[in-house]
Amino acid sequence: MIPQDIAHEPSWYESSARARIDGVLDPGSFTELLGPQCRIMSPHLALFDLPPAFDDGMIVGRGLLDGHPVAVAAQEGQFMGGTFAEVSGAKLVGLLRAAAASAGTSQTVSAVLLLLDTGGVRLQEANAGELAVSETIRAVLAVRQAGIPVIALIGGRAGAFGGGSLVASCCSRIVMTEQGRISVTGPEVIETNKGAEEFDSRDRALVWRVTGGRSRALLGGADRYIRGDVASFRAAARDRANPPAFDIDTMRAEQVRLEKRLERYGDCHDTPEIWARMNLPDPAGISEIDDAAFIERLAATGGAHDAR
């Protein structure tokens, strides 16, 4: 149920990528790079008789957040599932490389915001898309090494699947909503390959329990859990205190964090089992409570997850 107080605010889930950018940045501050009028489009979709998009579903540029310059990239999840492809991927990689190169110059940015909304690699351009993901990861890590945080904002229709989930895991911070989902292999693909007894993709509650924002936040797979309105995303993007450096100490801390997770929960079969082991009150009810109650409960766990 949508709480009364946000029922009339613009929803991130329902918004287009362009509307999300406008909602996150200071009003009127966004400058798009290689915008739709440049007509830099996928040359490969015609082979499959599919319509292209003027921006190939990737909008990149720079703008201001509280007056501080930031770089921003947003995937349009409604076009081809927000997929990584030759052009869409290269726009993102170009932005990240430029952001890393700008560190220490007058052109530098205070953060890179990645508004992920993606089913992963675009299969019509599978090889270019897979490489774009790998190049994106390397470029994200170079931006972080240059001392600039990269913040992933996830709450769109397409979630962050496939290569998109790996990109998210390489960011300094991951911000998620209840509707946001992160997973490497999508539930439908697991069901197709391994059968409905392994993962019944039509069981929506199960899909959300496994991949959704609440489970990810409780387990440490996301740093911030927020309500699904655009204003909450803007507030989360503004809060960039102490992002983890990409260095050996962070990686060692993450190694310990992920090893412990396997030790503690590796034999669990469903998320309520994990939550029970975390000593959360009423684990079966976690999916049912509203966002305010969940955010309170998450805070009560002490929920700070170092490493990333």
């Binding site: 915008g35 739709p36 009028q37 998009a53 003027f54 921006d55 409604q78 076009f79 081809m80």
Partner: peptide, 18 residues
């Protein structure tokens, strides 16, 4: 000078105006 509206989603369209 220009505007873009809509998205190339199923049952939808995008229009670039210049």
């Amino acid at each position: 000078a220009q505007a873009i509206v809509g998205v190339v989603a199923s049952g939808n369209l995008e229009i670039l105006l210049e």
